[in-house]
């Protein structure tokens, strides 16, 4: 139903839509009933109220139906999350280091860059580590977020499905320049990525990463 920049967009957006539709339906219903009752049973039109203490079948209905609906939501959320937590074994590994207030990316050949370069349509596994306080690695377009902690090595993964540039943001408050701890994911066709990785002269990195900014 949804196409997006990564393999997670579909399931996350589907779950979002399901919750949205159910929520809006209920909100409209409740709001409509409130307004309707307020008009229909206003003191002027209906000076004498009727005492109704409750209705057990109704109470059961509006307990059971929402319970079923939230279990449906839960299930979509859980299955979507399960995809995020199951990392393919053949994923290409990149080390991500966060520190106040910048990102560093290190590739299998010990190559380092300020922007994250990845090949398209290939699972990428990110090993996340912080040198100081808590950060969070967040790529909104990919629906990817994971805390970057100093004492444990969290991992996350994604498969980019479109070439292009996407924002990386720090999502865990980390001090003064938290809002400037930004970078980019640059998704390249696989051969271009391999070309880029082979040119291990620092000049080529800086041209590419500055071109990206």
């Amino acid at each position: 139903m949804f196409e997006g920049a990564s393999n997670f967009v579909h399931s996350v957006d589907t779950a979002f839509l399901i919750v949205l539709v159910i929520s809006v339906a209920f909100l409209v219903l409740i709001t409509f009933l409130m307004i309707f009752f307020v008009i229909k049973y206003s003191r002027k039109k209906n000076p004498k109220a009727e005492n109704i203490h409750g209705n057990v079948p109704l109470e059961i209905a509006w307990t059971v139906i929402p319970t079923i609906l939230v279990l449906v939501m839960f299930w979509f959320g859980w299955t979507g999350y399960k995809e995020m937590s199951e990392i393919p074994e053949d994923a290409y590994v990149i080390d991500v280091t966060g520190q106040m207030w910048q990102w560093k990316f290190k590739y299998e050949n010990n190559f380092e860059s300020d922007s994250l370069f990845v090949p398209v349509n290939k699972p990428i596994k990110l090993r996340l580590h912080s040198l100081d306080v808590n950060h969070a690695f967040f790529v909104p377009a990919f629906r990817v977020k994971k805390d970057v902690l100093p004492n444990r090595n969290n991992v996350t993964w994604f498969t980019a499905t479109e070439t292009g540039e996407f924002e990386i943001l720090c999502a865990e408050y980390c001090g003064m320049n938290h809002s400037y701890m930004l970078s980019k994911v640059i998704v390249l066709p696989e051969y271009e990525f391999n070309e880029w990785l082979k040119k291990d002269s620092s000049s080529s990195i800086s041209t590419l990463s500055s071109a990206s900014e």
Partner: peptide
């Protein structure tokens, strides 16, 4: 409810 939904929560 959006936040309780795990996959949406990540976003």
């Amino acid at each position: 409810l959006f936040q309780g939904t795990l996959s949406v929560n990540i976003q």
